[in-house]
Design a protein around this nucleic acid. Structure first.
Length: 270
DNA sequence: AAAGACACCTGTCCGC
DNA sequence: TGCGGACAGGTGTCTT
């Protein structure tokens, strides 16, 4: 279920338990993820896990021998449990450490991925074309405005394009556009710089707040598994199609853009 | 070149 | 209660 906030919360949750530990064994219980899990993931066995980084929604587990690239897809979850803990259904990967703990990847839909690269991860095919991180200074209104010129696609699908900016998934695209008062169908190239100046901080705030909230409820990944913390955040439009707008009480409209459900207020969003 | 459709897969929910 | 169909937080790849 991860959007960027949940991936970041996952990173924060697992890293204190596994960073600095030696990897004893990579147990691939089911290699049928989005791409077949390659044999090369075994190259990290015996290595010390140096750190857990994140780029977009990819988690990067770095060792001196190379980096594991892990993606949670739509339904992936991570938890840290003692190696003797019985496997759950859909526990496809178990990375076992020298202290008797293991990192489990549970992913019912198997849209997630586990890959390995010896190179710097940012030159990997999956990562090299990614746009800026939304929470860094590289993502700013001038940049987004420039990228949007001549683009006729709806602003919502534009925001969800990883080459433009990473980490804005369906929930937060809906929420940010509502807060910014922008109709998600509006052509990205026809939106003024002023409106992008309003939108960009809203995207940053929305993601940052979600990380904070997830962090409070999902801090400890050694527990069974956490409820998605960011659902605690009040979602104003996502999942509320047909219900009343929390601002103006008009009925919220639900449409599909790029095959994704899109909810907005025809009064508040122009 | 850009935009949109499709594909991958399992679980859940809704209407009949 | 059972069954078919639609849908779900992502994203690479194919088709227009």
């Amino acid at each position: 279920m991860p959007e960027l906030p949940e991936v970041e919360v996952s990173r924060l949750g697992i890293s204190p338990h596994i960073e600095g530990r030696q990897i004893r064994h990579v147990n691939v219980r089911d290699s049928r993820l989005r791409w077949p899990v390659p044999e090369t993931v075994k190259e990290v066995e015996g290595q010390t896990l140096l750190n857990v980084k994140r780029r977009a929604k990819y988690l990067l587990l770095e060792t001196h021998a190379g980096t594991l690239i892990l993606h949670l897809g739509m339904s992936g979850k991570l938890r840290v449990v003692p190696v003797e803990t019985p496997f759950y259904k859909h526990d496809h990967i178990s990375i076992e450490f020298d202290d008797g703990q293991s990192l489990r990847l549970n992913d019912p839909r198997r849209f997630g991925a586990l890959l390995f690269t010896k190179e710097q991860p940012d030159v990997h095919d999956l990562l090299k074309h990614l746009g800026p991180e939304p929470l860094t200074d590289a993502f700013h209104a001038d940049y987004l405005f420039e990228q949007s010129r001549k683009r006729t696609q709806p602003v919502k699908t534009f925001l969800m394009d990883n080459r433009v900016v990473v980490g804005v998934g369906n929930i937060y695209a809906n929420e940010a556009l509502f807060k910014a008062g922008i109709n998600p169908k509006r052509a990205a190239g026809k939106i003024s710089k002023q409106r992008y100046e309003k939108l960009v901080p809203i995207i940053k705030d929305t993601l940052a707040q979600a990380i904070e909230q997830g962090g409070t409820t999902l801090r400890d990944f050694t527990q069974v598994d956490g409820a998605p913390g960011y659902f605690a955040q009040k979602l104003q439009v996502y999942g509320r199609g047909g219900k009343l707008c929390m601002v103006c009480s008009q009925r919220l409209k639900e449409i599909r853009l790029g095959q994704r459900s899109t909810v907005y207020c025809t009064t508040c969003q122009r």
